[in-house]
Design a protein around this nucleic acid. Structure first.
Lengths: 344, 344
DNA sequence: CTGTTAGCGCTTTCAA
DNA sequence: TTGAAAGCGCTAACAG
């Protein structure tokens, strides 16, 4: 491997008694070259099994045709789908993707950013970690002339391109729906409040209650219940209250909602009759639990496509790196059995 | 963005009246430099917000510290987990990952391979597409001095590093388990036979029948039933036979098994009493269907870690690119309600 | 320990 | 239409 010698444009040039620049022109479809020599070069390139060295070409050109993506975990449905959406668009444009995961760690997130800056990617797409502390690393991206697009979990006070869900509205719709179904004491499982998305979802919950003249009961709001286990624990706690809730909005994730459902099933509490459940994210499994879980679809693939298109549209116009354009992807309330009290 | 000027080692050198090579040495922790100047350089680098240009450094060094991964779909549990496993190991070593998806298309797979060769990645990790036709592109990887590790879906007749599941044994165990539970007419939903994994799973099924002296009934073997919809259609067909099966082994995927379960539920056929169901992959949802689905865990994260470790171990020893070492990850039969006829 | 020099493979002026 | 030459930013061999 170490001593492997690959065919370069010089090899092709030498073989044809031409200059490397001509070879380069032929390979890059430049107009300043005759059809005859071009064909000759292309044929020889194939014959010699030539592959371009992107490292050299990008170094010379000063950019990379590569987009870096940083997500907390790639093996989570939502993020995997966003990436799939991005990839779909970038592939067509001949761009590659470098994907990094922060593992919800701020320190690793910073590392990832630095790696991508070093790699001279054209653009960094990021959804920040739950451990998010400050935004100097994000500013650094812009300072190095790299486009920055935040999505989903974004640093609010930083002016960049952002592609987000309207979390507040979606939560409000979900809670309103539950109220209309007749639920009166709706509990909230909330996520880490240092992340904007979880703050917004809480706002939506509060707004819905207010709109329908329902008082906020603090003991029905449980912090940091965003895994299945934490959701289950929260549910145990809530159901042991003297006045337990008649519905639980697991605003953090469907996994959390699944924890709720499991405890309810174990305790023989009928869902949706005695307890309504609503999750967040429309994970595949929500459709097939019994009862199926009401949830919110974030249109993750569309989100990915939008991100990629945003890059290409703005790149074309050659605008400044630090744009400030927020695109809202409308999430969608998926109503299923777990909150359908009326139709029982 | 275009005219953005980043700090280079020359900027640092000039500012300190030093030579670029000294700066390089300091930055790379070379021993041939005094602690004093090293500190000076490091401080100035920070002050000027210097980031290395990996393009240049890699071009010079001749390699990339990057591993390319090609999978059919990144938003499938199994692949996402393998990638997560790879990433976990490579991150610690300071390597980046370039991830591409072939979308089950042979043509795109070839494109991905070419991109990665151009990028001079150190290693390409691939699980071939269902559309797999020939292996010239894989050979080309090796010819260009790039390590090649195949996993899961591998081109059998090509000698490379391979990390695979023992699909045959796992299938055999699964089917044997069903036989022991008392199922006598076990149907097989099989996947595209141009992929080795599906051939192996079929072999395992056949071997189990043979071992237990059960005749193979061709009409119980259904081709290409590897999505939920195809699984459902196959089930309809199977259950309308004059002698329908009493169990279905969806060897292709849990999604297919889910299709089976849905039809059985719709037709009021008791699972596991009248119909046993076994899937493949241990997708998250198999645990929470009712009944929960028996399936096979592929230990995907371990698989990813193994792949990465294989690269680093073999790279260290400086062996030839075209090694031929097959590592078997033992899959695990997860027995659940859907095949537990005895305990009902 | 530090400086000088060359060159990785490519693109891109400028000349011819 | 082609060639010559310079240089992207870095590392590494060689001198001093």
């Amino acid at each position: 491997m170490k001593n492997h010698k690959r065919t370069t444009i010089y090899d092709i040039a030498k073989k044809l008694n031409l200059n490397a620049s001509s070879v380069s022109r032929a390979l890059n479809n430049d107009s300043n070259i005759s059809e005859v020599t071009k064909k000759l070069i292309l044929d020889t390139a194939r014959e010699l099994n030539y592959k371009q060295n992107s490292l050299a070409s990008n170094l010379r050109r000063g950019h990379n045709r590569t987009i870096g993506v940083i997500v907390p975990h790639i093996n989570q449905n939502f993020f995997a789908n966003v990436i799939a959406g991005i990839e779909e668009v970038t592939y067509k444009k001949g761009y590659s993707l470098i994907i990094c995961q922060s593992n919800e760690s701020y320190e690793r997130e910073v590392d990832c950013v630095n790696t991508l800056i070093n790699q001279h990617v054209n653009c960094i797409v990021i959804s920040v970690s739950a451990d998010f502390k400050e935004d100097t690393h994000l500013k650094s991206i812009v300072e190095h002339g790299i486009k920055l697009i935040q999505f989903d979990r974004v640093a609010d006070n930083l002016d960049t391109y952002k592609v987000v869900n309207n979390n507040e509205q979606a939560s409000m719709e979900a809670v309103s729906h539950m109220i209309k179904e007749g639920y009166k004491r709706i509990a909230l499982l909330e996520g880490p409040q240092n992340l904007n998305i979880f703050r917004q979802r809480k706002s939506g919950y509060l707004a819905a209650l207010k709109k329908h003249g329902i008082a906020v009961i603090p003991e029905l709001i449980i912090e940091n219940a965003w895994t299945k286990e934490l959701g289950a624990a929260a549910t145990r706690k809530l159901l042991s209250l003297t006045q337990p809730p008649d519905a639980i909005f697991a605003s953090t994730s469907d996994f959390s909602a699944l924890g709720v459902l499991e405890i309810a099933t174990k305790m023989n509490i009928p869902v949706p009759e005695t307890l309504g459940i609503c999750g967040y994210s429309n994970e595949a499994f929500t459709e097939i639990t019994s009862p199926a879980i009401t949830t919110i679809d974030q249109h993750s693939i569309t989100m990915g496509q939008t991100i990629a298109n945003l890059y290409f549209d703005e790149a074309g116009s050659g605008t400044e790196s630090l744009g400030n354009k927020v695109i809202n992807i409308q999430p969608e309330l998926i109503i299923r059995k777990s909150t359908s009290k009326c139709n029982v």
